[in-house]
């Protein structure tokens, strides 16, 4: 679906942060903000909720660790018990190192794959971004012009006063 958007470009992170706060105050809907690096405080300014990927990490780690503990127990105490150095079949202390490593491995890979899936990043994905300079030194805020009451010119003046390097409108149907 086509939508009108306002692209506001900055060359300074502080300008971007205050502009984002302004936009939220005016209750304009921010489609997204594009930055060359992770700007400290931007997620708070945008009102982004804490990511739920931490849960994915915890659950994958728990599965890895507990699963491997169970597997080692099954191998050594149930499937084919072998007397190794007189140790008991069920040697919990000896099972810890491998279980720990598998916990870390699954937690790490689970989190990263979840990140790529949720952010829709994959080999061959065409980068959808309003400007090629974002990965260099420009910060871009994309505002959706929701309704007819949105005064693009007033917004443009506001942002230019706040230090915007460029403000332009566009109509697009790209999924950002």
């Amino acid at each position: 679906m086509n939508e009108r958007q306002l692209l506001v470009t900055f060359d300074h992170a502080d300008d971007l942060l205050s502009a984002v706060e302004t936009a939220r105050r005016e209750r304009w809907s921010i489609v997204d903000v594009f930055t060359p690096y992770a700007v400290h405080g931007l997620d708070r300014a945008m009102g982004l909720r804490p990511s739920r990927l931490t849960w994915v990490c915890f659950i994958c780690g728990a599965i890895g660790g507990l699963g491997m503990l169970w597997f080692q127990h099954w191998v050594a105490a149930i499937a084919w018990p072998i007397n190794v150095g007189g140790k008991p079949w069920n040697s919990l202390p000896a099972d810890v190192p491998v279980a720990f490593e598998m916990m870390i491995l699954l937690a790490a890979f689970g989190s990263v794959f979840a990140l790529l899936a949720v952010s829709r990043l994959y080999p061959g994905k065409k980068a959808v971004m309003p400007s090629g300079e974002i990965t260099d030194d420009r910060f871009v805020m994309v505002i959706r012009q929701d309704n007819a009451a949105f005064d693009a010119d007033a917004a443009r003046d506001l942002f230019e006063q706040a230090g915007a390097v460029d403000v332009r409108e566009r109509v697009t149907d790209e999924e950002l």
Partner: peptide, 12 residues
């Protein structure tokens, strides 16, 4: 704690 315990347990 675990390192101390496990190494002593292992060598017995």
């Amino acid at each position: 704690w675990f390192s101390q315990y496990m190494l002593i347990w292992y060598s017995n």
